[in-house]
Simulated assay, not measured.
Amino acid sequence: MGFMIGIDGGGTKSIGSIVDSKGMIIATAEEGSMNLHTREVEAVGHTLENLINKLINAAGCDEREVDLVSIGVAGIGRKRDEITFRKIIERINLSIPVLLNTDIKIALVGAHGKEEGIFLLSGTGSIAYGIDSTGSEHRIGGWGHILGDEGSGYDIGRRGLEKIVQGIDKRVDSSNLKKRVFDNLGFTSIDDLINFVYSAKGTKADIARIAPIVEEGAQAGDKICIDLLIEAGNKLVDITEEIIFQMPHNENLVICAGGGVLENITTVYKHFHFGIRKKYPAITIIPPKYSPVLGALIMGCKHLNKMEEINLWKNQWKQVK
């Protein structure tokens, strides 16, 4: 077995690693987003090509020595988008075989170390995804910031900004949150906030940057901030419950909770954990075992019928940041 590349083509950034025949991570590199819904097709192609070239060059090998590129990509959950991405692969004249999956699937496989279990992701967006013991896939959410993303960083950020403008209208007292947000983002007036939200340059990730500021307020005892984060935790309980209902033999499931919100915003995680454990005491909640990039590599090994290798590799892998 030669080299193999694993790529997490996320909605905000893309991360890839190349491993040798012993599973040693030789190099890791980053590029921009590969999401077809937020970037032009040509830009996505350049991003993919640049990332693969970076990894191959860092490993000191050439394409002929790479057995497989295993990719999980944001925004290809629908067949039409998958076809578009496969055309991108053809256009960059990649001579290496490619295994293509969604980003949430490689995240689940990385989180559990296998293709089974539930993965709840709350980062900039949110989605609950499960693979049951028969291999059937289940999904709740992942509809984007306009139609979904409940309990995500974007959702928390938007709700925080909503409370600020309600405070300006004197409907609530959100002066403490307003001061925190304005100080952190360098705003001097409400016009700055409006430009931040509605500017053509503004992104979902920009709004999601408000979430850690809301957490700071919650830790300082601001009731509005605390309530917003409890609300987010409860929303994540709701979407996770729907996945639990869909999974057969759901009494002793293992749920992995990951993403920037669940890993870094304590108040949200605490209320999510409490809500699930109160309703389903037999269910176990764990942090991710491995990164999505390593999830892509695990799926690559399975595709190449190299499961003995992957069981050895897992012992030496650490989280790829």
Results as ranks from 00 to 15, higher is better:
V268D: 03
Y280F: 03
I276C: 04
M247E: 00
K223S: 14
A232Q: 01
Y269A: 04
D206N: 15
Y280A: 00
P212W: 06
T240Q: 00
G275S: 02
K201L: 10
A218R: 10
C256T: 11
G275I: 04
E263F: 14
I265T: 11
W313G: 04
I194H: 06
I224K: 11
E309Q: 15
C225G: 12
K223M: 14
K289N: 07
V293R: 02
N305I: 07
V268T: 10
W313C: 11
G186A: 09
G221A: 06
I190Y: 13
F274M: 01
G300N: 08
A218S: 12
S291P: 14
S199E: 07
C225E: 08
L193W: 05
I298N: 06
E231K: 14
I190G: 07
V293Q: 06
F245L: 00
S199W: 05
K270A: 13
I210M: 15
Y269F: 15
K289I: 03
P281W: 03
P292W: 00
V261G: 06
Q246M: 00
V237N: 00
I243N: 04
K302A: 07
P292K: 02
H273S: 00
I194C: 13
I244W: 01
H303L: 00
F272N: 02
K201H: 11
P248M: 01
I243V: 13
E216K: 10
E241D: 10
G186Q: 05
D238H: 00
V237R: 04
Y269E: 06
C256V: 15
A220S: 15
I265G: 05
I255Y: 10
N234P: 02
I207F: 08
N305G: 12
M247H: 02
A218F: 03
R277W: 09
E215Y: 04
V197F: 06
C301W: 01
K204S: 05
K279Y: 09
F272S: 09
H303Q: 12
N234F: 04
G260C: 08
N234L: 09
N252H: 13
I230K: 04
N264Y: 08
L229C: 04
D191E: 12
D192P: 12
V197I: 15
I213L: 15
P281H: 01
K235E: 15
E308I: 09
Y290Q: 10
Q246S: 02
F274N: 02
N311C: 05
T240K: 02
Q219K: 15
N264W: 09
A296L: 02
V254C: 09
N252T: 10
A200T: 08
F272Y: 13
A205E: 03
K223W: 10
K204G: 08
D206T: 09
N252S: 13
H249C: 03
S291N: 13
P292Y: 03
D191W: 13
Y290F: 15
V237S: 01
E308R: 12
N305L: 11
L294K: 09
F182W: 12
N264R: 14
G217V: 10
T284Q: 13
F182P: 11
D183R: 06
L294E: 14
G233Q: 09
I207D: 01
A211L: 12
H303E: 14
I224D: 11
S199P: 01
L253R: 02
G259A: 05
V237D: 01
N195V: 07
D183N: 13
C256I: 04
P288Y: 06
H273L: 01
H271P: 00
E308D: 14
